[in-house]
Write a protein that binds this DNA or RNA. Structure first.
Lengths: 211, 211
DNA sequence: CCTACCGATCGGTAGG
DNA sequence: CCTACCGATCGGTAGG
């Protein structure tokens, strides 16, 4: 068990494998439901039914709907960490960073539930008083900060095309990745997300990406 | 009254100014509500209350919630037409097209309600059985087709940087515009949507845009 | 985890 | 037959 898990799960849970399995099942069902109908429209009654427990049973594991949302976002964050965000503190290699980003987008494209979750929740979270708004605001700020470092690394090594403005490029590339998800969810057969990202990166980076 | 309006509004409505005003009021309130909490979570009861009519009164104008959604999308479409989509049939001037696109994004940035409506509805509509899914699928297909023509016009006139791949560029630029909306709604003070679009267009177009 | 509930609200429809 | 609503209520479901 990692440190992050220990901080978010009750320490006793390791001793109750059945409860742990149920908890994981509920999180997975909630991830699916939130991605399909949004957080606000998802109902704990239907979630409980989908997991074969009563609504009171579900509320034993997650006392409020909001606590379930937190668990879903944490779960998703852990998956990202595994694939991508390993460079805490280390200086960022811009080429490696964007190669990893393409791999992450390709990985997401193989997991429609995860894409749907983030496409639906991130825009739902822009509205006032949404419980996930602070999470997404912080997440985007962190992503922009990290990608800006990657862009600046490329600029310092003269790996951007000469006419490309590095300022604001991170914001636009994150926007590109987000926007591709909506078009892909609507037309999965005509949109290839990692290919479009790679193509746009080729438009601004003057050397080929590794990997 | 334009052809589009005549096709969607009852022909008799012009003779009932009070009903017409009420109808416009309801559409505006629905546009706000759908953008704030999404279509599914918005309630006709609250909409009616916000308009000072009973729920039955609201349903007199819009017999179903879905018919109200249609009216909101048509209303928004008409606004777009006024500002932008005037080139039906005509060949597209790529430079004019993207200059208009920047103006449209700037116009949207001055109207948070409209941005919120589209950011929230477009992703909500990606989910199965959403009544607006066909609308958004068709809208994106049309937008891609139109922007692809603009990109091809630029390519034919040699106005793209030599290393830029025109294929798929329209998809990515539309994705960029959509993605910027989410970041802007979460951080309106740190994101300038038209500026980021202009900057990205400068990265691929080798001449300055008009206007 | 269950049964048994609460105050309220959902989208849609009735007759007048 | 039209409009612009009204008060009441249908069977179900919401989060807690």
């Amino acid at each position: 068990m990692t440190k992050a898990q220990a901080a978010t799960r009750p320490a006793t849970s390791r001793n109750y494998p059945k409860g742990e399995r149920r908890r994981a099942q509920i999180i997975k069902a909630a991830l699916t439901a939130f991605g399909q109908v949004g957080y606000r429209h998802a109902s704990t009654v239907q979630l409980a039914a989908a997991c074969g427990v009563s609504r009171a049973g579900l509320l034993h594991h997650f006392p409020t709907k909001e606590s379930l949302l937190e668990a879903v976002l944490e779960e998703r964050e852990l998956q990202d960490d595994q694939h991508f965000f390993r460079t805490d503190g280390d200086p960022i290699d811009g080429l490696e960073y964007f190669a990893s980003m393409i791999r992450l987008v390709a990985h997401n494209q193989a997991n429609p539930l995860v894409v749907s979750l983030f496409a639906v929740l991130s825009s739902e979270a822009t509205t006032a008083d949404h419980p996930a708004r602070p999470y997404f605001a912080a997440r985007y700020e962190r992503a922009r900060s990290q990608m800006t470092q990657a862009v600046e690394d490329l600029a310092a090594r003269d790996l951007l095309h000469s006419h490309v403005a590095p300022s604001g490029l991170a914001v636009s590339l994150i926007a590109l990745i987000d926007g591709l998800q909506v078009q892909w969810l609507l037309s999965p057969d005509t949109i290839d997300m990692p290919e479009h990202l790679r193509s746009m990166l080729r438009n601004v980076i003057s050397v080929e990406l590794p990997g």
